[in-house]
Design a protein around this nucleic acid. Structure first.
Length: 510
RNA sequence: GCGCUUGUAGCUUAGUUGGUAGAGCAUCGCACUUUUAAUGCGAGGGUCAUGGGUUCGAAUCCCGUCAAGCGUACCA
């Protein structure tokens, strides 16, 4: 593991040794008692208190991000978790009386400190001639040496950015650097964190229980997707990373909980693009004695409440649109949606007629597609992209929904809805199928699909059937794609921008 | 998976019909005690992603490989 060091790295390692030779530990163990953060200092600075400030010591810590050396004094910008604050460092202020050679300033501060190093500084607050709130430094010490140079983004007088660190590959592979130098990154993840936090709060207030279910599953069920396969050595058995947790959460409803929810990772071994990462975060909620109409109302209230709490408004700019999370969401059945956007009424059509319609609209189809799949293709080609404002699409063909209760009044359909926002699916919900006899038949239909070569057909889960046979109350369940919702709330068009560490191909370190 | 595009110093990049790389910031040295992309003077730093080929000569043309972005497919 010998890596060719760059001139920067060689220089910094040499400085490291020099520091040690001077008796300065570049990685000291003792804690540094921080009293203030950059942003608070700037927000709370009071011009009328300037005289008082002189006798009050503040202590800040962070990375040195810029130094403007004026000779016997220098200005440095220190960046902590909240932002930046300017340090005013005067030679004769920071050197102790017995340091007659002014080593602490000339050697330690000016020569051995680098951009990116962590320092701790104490001093008092003041304002420079040009009006910048600053710290007049009395002491400055090294807290941690940086051995690699950071790409420093500079902003000129016109606000133009120079040397921006924007290569997506570097940003995602070295997210730590991205977070240090690109100030637009952190806010996205603060929204993400707060959004999840508020969802939890909402559910907890309703009295629903947050639970955890297995990530390693013997039967991968609850969705149609290709799984990751692994193997347990001691049990000597194949295991799958979960593609969904639906069947486990329903077992808990069987077990007597009124409402359970889980926020966690799902894993799907499929293609990656702007809206798909192999592992992603789903929120699933199941509530007993409810149906999908109730769930639509709950979803509206949930998003209205949580988006307001997180963003301070329910009107969110997404691309060229303003999405209104506070409105009553439009509800269209799948047939109505296709009719509305294509002018074609397919509600009474059989498979052959649907094939004709698809051909007319130049939709690619093949012989393996049944009636349900054809309708889904039609919907995707005609309606989906128009669903900008939050819209519930309801009543799906039964063939594609093996875990959903049959529609109470319309043959061939199920009580299911998906929520579309900005042309993308963000949630999927049912009146859950709780009839064990019907459920077995649905699984058997899936087995037939699997035999025809459908890799994504759902596997039969005997234990889940056994649970249903003990009786599950009428229940409604919903799953949200958390990453996609965060993309909407932060106006990001790539899922990689809302994941700290999006999946990348292995990096070659030589 | 397929298609298109991209890959030049730590970062951002120039490189015209192929003639062995130019800049800004950063780095190193010197000056400067209220600057803010500080400034002034001086210096160093690039096997042009990688492996082949064409050519007297390739960052520049051709082929393979690797990685990324976008599009497309797959993903109820």
């Amino acid at each position: 593991m010998t890596r060719q060091l760059t001139e920067y790295e060689i220089a910094r390692r040499a400085k490291l040794e020099q520091l040690q030779a001077m008796g300065i530990d570049p990685y000291p163990a003792a804690h540094f008692p921080v009293t203030h953060h950059a942003q608070d200092i700037k927000n709370n600075f009071d011009d009328s208190q300037i005289e008082t400030y002189k006798s009050q010591t503040v202590a800040v810590a962070g990375r040195i991000m810029m130094v403007r050396d004026m000779g016997k004094a220098a200005f440095a910008e220190l960046q902590d978790s909240s932002g930046r604050i300017q340090l005013y460092v005067q030679r004769d202020e920071i050197c102790s009386p017995d340091d007659t050679e002014k080593e602490h300033y000339k050697t330690f501060f000016k020569k051995l400190l680098d951009l990116g190093d962590f320092v701790g500084a104490t001093g008092y607050l003041f304002k420079t001639k040009t009006g910048e709130v600053s710290i007049h430094v009395k002491t400055i010490q090294l807290l941690s040496k940086a051995l690699r140079p950071l790409p420093i983004v500079k902003i000129d007088a016109e606000g133009k950015k120079h040397d921006e660190f924007l290569d997506p590959e570097l940003r995602y592979r070295q997210r730590y650097v991205d977070l240090i130098v690109n100030d637009f990154v952190k806010p996205i993840f603060l929204v993400r964190s707060r959004f999840i936090n508020r969802l939890r709060h909402y559910f907890d207030q309703k009295g629903w229980l947050e639970v955890e279910t297995p990530t390693l599953q013997i039967v991968h069920g609850g969705a149609a997707a290709r799984p990751f396969k692994t193997h347990h050595n001691t049990l000597d058995t194949p295991l799958f990373l979960r593609i969904a947790n639906e069947l486990y959460l329903k077992r808990l409803i069987v077990g007597g909980f009124d409402g359970v929810y889980e926020i966690g990772k799902m894993f799907r071994n499929e293609g990656m693009d702007r809206t798909h990462n192999p592992e992603f975060t789903a929120l699933e909620l199941y509530v007993a004695y409810k149906d999908y109409f109730w769930m639509m109302n709950m979803t509206e209230d949930l998003l209205r409440t949580v988006v307001q709490e997180v963003c301070g408004t329910t009107q969110i700019q997404v691309g060229d649109h303003i999405i209104d999370f506070g409105a009553t969401y439009q509800r269209l059945s799948m047939y109505e949606a296709i009719h509305k956007y294509s002018g074609i009424d397919i509600s009474q059509m059989d498979e052959a007629q649907l094939r004709e319609v698809c051909k007319k609209l130049h939709i690619e189809i093949d012989n393996t597609m049944g009636r349900g799949k054809l309708i889904d293709e039609l919907f995707g080609a005609t309606a989906e992209k128009h669903l900008i404002q939050p819209t519930f699409i309801t009543d799906y063909p039964a063939e594609m929904s093996p875990l959903t209760k049959k529609h109470r009044s319309q043959a061939g359909l199920v009580e299911r809805f998906e929520l579309f926002i900005n042309g993308k699916e963000v949630a999927n919900a049912y009146s859950e199928l709780n009839d064990p006899i019907d459920q077995l038949q649905r699984f058997e239909e899936q087995l037939l699909l699997a035999q025809r070569g459908d890799e994504e057909a759902m596997a039969l889960d005997e234990d889940f059937l056994r649970a249903l046979e003990y009786g599950m109350p009428p229940t409604s369940g919903i799953g949200f794609g958390i990453d996609r919702l965060v993309m909407l709330l932060t106006n990001q068009q790539s899922i990689q921008e809302v994941l700290f560490f999006p999946q990348m191909k292995p990096e070659n370190f030589e």
